[in-house]
Design a protein around this nucleic acid. Structure first.
Lengths: 201, 201
DNA sequence: CGCCGATTCTATAGCACAATAGATTCGAGG
DNA sequence: CCTCGAATCTATTGTGCTATAGAATCGGCG
């Protein structure tokens, strides 16, 4: 945040900051926001607890950064998917796969579970991205209804929430059971979801 | 736990204990386990913080009690549903409605989100109930496949996890959006799920 | 009434943690 | 080799919280 100056220096500062946000995401995901100490984050980075305060004004600010960073990524990806020429069913598939992708799991889990501990002002800031993401999904569903890919009697809002619910629960489940790989789980969920949305025939 | 003696006194002691577990569930659900203080629980009960330690050896023990209490209820209900003569589709409907019933929401949320903070020994104790619950659901799905109510190519394990995922996300969602009542949400989810599981025709 | 166990209370020890203050080191540019 | 800002460090303060110790109170029963 405070790092500035020349482009090269700025780039390195940004990299360092994102390393620190990654560490915070990992620690918050594992121990929960309140259960994690700033010491834990510093340990992971091999630095002193107090040094973190060079990058963040408070532990809370670090949580907000994790939530924003994680969700910004989601919004970018949904935009790309929305723009594509695929059918609604294909888009739903892509969304679910991207939503529950294991790579950004820590960010997703922190966003899901810990954002509620932020003060109202910070939550509102995050909400903007959240709404855009949900809207984009809902538009895909509605497009599918108009194009005849999905049933006309579908409640688009509920279908959107169901998609998110399945994606979130998949992300939360990974690692609980060796036989249930993310691949298998996501394939199965996509299959169930598309069957549920499509016209039966 | 420590209360004993005569039947009447025992009954009253049990009531008191469950009042305290209820309060703990509410506070843990709202603030998270680590974010909640024993003071918060005592405030809700109108008693002193230290008095709680008459009922529980530790804050952790209170969390375990909440998780056990909440899930025991689930297991009892799933048994009743499994015994009934309904079709698999009807049973799935009942399970989802009961699973995400708003009445026991605090317990459900605490179980979902906070159980992971318990030490291994306590988690194992809880796991037994968890496994029984999941097994019972899976058996309902499998019964549906055998009876021809559901598709033969269904992955019963994935269908079980999808049901739980939808139920859990419904329970977590309530109150976020006034237009989305539990009723509306659960009806929609049941509809989607049953369509996804059934033979198309 | 007076005992006794159950329950709640007051008081406090002891620890873990977030955050601040200020010194020190690092590294690029002149 | 010196300067200066960025980055990290050491040291510490203050606070909030869990848990313990032991005193006070309550209520039924002999």
């Amino acid at each position: 945040m405070k790092a500035v100056a020349l482009p090269r220096a700025a780039a390195s500062a940004r990299r360092r900051l994102s390393e620190i946000i990654d560490a915070a995401a990992k620690v918050f995901a594992q121990r929960g926001y309140h259960g994690a100490s700033t010491q834990d984050i510093a340990d992971l980075l091999g630095m002193r607890q107090a040094s973190l305060y060079y990058y963040f004004d408070s532990k809370e600010a670090a949580l907000e950064a994790v939530c924003l960073d994680g969700h910004q990524d989601y919004v970018e990806r949904i935009r790309a998917i929305a723009r594509s020429a695929a059918t609604a069913s294909e888009k739903v598939t892509e969304v679910l796969f991207h939503h529950a992708a294991p790579e950004r799991r820590d960010f997703t889990l922190v966003f899901l579970r810990e954002r509620r501990f932020l003060p109202l002002a910070a939550r509102k800031r995050i909400r903007a991205f959240e709404v855009e993401y949900e809207r984009a999904i809902q538009r895909i569903i509605e497009q599918g209804i108009r194009s005849g890919d999905f049933r006309a009697d579908l409640d688009a809002r509920m279908a959107t929430l169901a998609l998110l619910g399945l994606g979130n629960s998949a992300a939360a489940w990974y690692g609980r059971e060796p036989a249930v790989t993310p691949q298998r789980m996501l394939r199965a969920y996509v299959d169930l979801l598309v069957r549920a949305l499509r016209l039966s025939h």
